[in-house]
Design a protein around this nucleic acid. Structure first.
Lengths: 249, 249
DNA sequence: CGAGCCGTTGAGGGGATTCAAGCTCAGTGG
DNA sequence: CCACTGAGCTTGAATCCCCTCAACGGCTCG
């Protein structure tokens, strides 16, 4: 029969055994750090698993949250609305990434976080991070690293996915999604409207491009339409072609 | 006759009197913090003013620098090159902003920093920031705030300036530059090629749009071609017009 | 005064958007 | 079990905005 632990000890045990601990925020904590996590007492109980189904919202733009989140499983997209009223998906984050960090500064969330696929996140109270941050330099460093990672990711995304011909951009997106999913694994296939908001193009354009890629064997839509299988070499060829025509200019 | 201070004391005096101290990184330091800045000793001497003329490079992409920079005067642009080989200006930063923060993590600079106008920056050694960071929670917080500011700025830039009709984007850019310069002040007027790289359009398109704005009285190019005067109400009208046509869709 | 950079303007073509039907498919209720 | 329904997807046709190519003009500087 299993021994019954107090709530925070159970959570500590879970954190120590977390499959994404290496990549996640508290991965920076060594044994001593984890001990401090335990000593943080009742606050540690604030760490919670949370599961979302696809299209469910994790937090809303403007919401004054008291938590940050580490993605444990699945993909989460961050959306904003431009001044012209157009929806933009500014990032898609996966396993191990930290979102909602603006809450650490007492700021409202700067964008809308929505699950792309079924998602599991780890909800971490700001107060807990603050406590540990004061004591643990490694956590401090890890936080800075996350922030830089987010900034760099956002800029790379913008530079590579927001310019060039439509076909090229879609291919780059698929390539990214493929890398995120792991070689050979089915990828998350966004709705056409989502692709459009991701890449800054019209819904119909996204549809045309995807249809053509399917005909060319780059892509194979799986039942349910929300996932697909990629043909790596066909994708690479198509990318080279698209880049070739783009480079002419 | 002025008294002669040891080098670091001179710098400390300068920092305490810095006109951008409130906005800049060390603005977070209180008197005790500034005292610690002095105690950091010889390292404090590492803080240095640096002046650049327009188009001079502050640091290069891939360079392993040991400093971060606070912009004291002028505008600095951060450039990257997309996979297709196209140059992209990902941010334009002004007075009080911190750049090159990736150096704090031991990483190479992630982009190219180039002066848009004559520029004055404050060069701060990473070692100094590390030392003070360990002792001063306020500085720590200020750093996090900078990072978040950079992330948010980059995303807002992308969302508002990278989509919509060309005319609309140029107007938004001018509006931004006008705000940065202050009402009534002449703005930095980028070269046409720079506008193109900033907004993701062709050089000729940028030229056409600017020419038309000049004819419409939104913009008045000043001698030297590198600065201009804005007509706020004409700009606002033009923005409303452009947004009106954009909203149809 | 010629060279060269930068900006302007025109003509032509092409890729993307828009508008407008159909179509597919999963889920629902009879 | 199956028609029904509606959301999402596809496709066509027309249009338009922007890109490309190209030539020219103005200004600065050697």
């Amino acid at each position: 029969m299993r021994r019954v632990y107090p709530l925070q000890a159970v959570q500590l045990e879970r954190c120590a055994a977390c499959p994404v601990r290496e990549m996640a925020l508290f991965g920076a904590l060594d044994e001593a750090g984890l001990a401090r996590l335990r000593d943080a007492g009742s606050e540690a109980a604030g760490i919670a698993d949370r599961r979302l189904s696809a299209d469910a919202r994790l937090y809303a733009l403007g919401e004054r949250g008291a938590s940050v989140y580490t993605v444990r499983e699945g993909l989460v997209r961050l959306e904003r609305v431009s001044e012209q009223g157009r929806r933009c998906i500014v990032r898609v984050v996966g396993r191990g990434e930290l979102i909602g960090a603006e809450a650490l500064l007492g700021q409202a969330y700067a964008d809308e976080a929505v699950a792309c696929t079924p998602v599991a996140v780890c909800r971490i109270p700001v107060a807990l991070v603050d406590t540990l941050r004061a004591q643990d330099a490694a956590l401090q460093l890890a936080l800075m690293r996350r922030w830089q990672q987010a900034l760099d990711g956002a800029l790379r995304w913008r530079v590579d996915l927001q310019s060039g011909p439509a076909a090229y951009r879609v291919l780059r997106l698929l390539d990214d999604l493929g890398r995120q999913a792991g070689a050979g694994m089915p990828i998350w296939l966004p709705r056409r409207e989502e692709i459009a908001d991701l890449l800054g193009m019209a819904l119909e354009t996204a549809s045309r491009v995807v249809s053509r890629l399917r005909r060319d064997g780059v892509l194979q839509v799986l039942p349910g339409r929300r996932s697909a299988r990629l043909q790596p070499q066909a994708l690479e060829q198509a990318l080279a072609r698209a880049l070739g025509t783009a480079e002419r200019g």
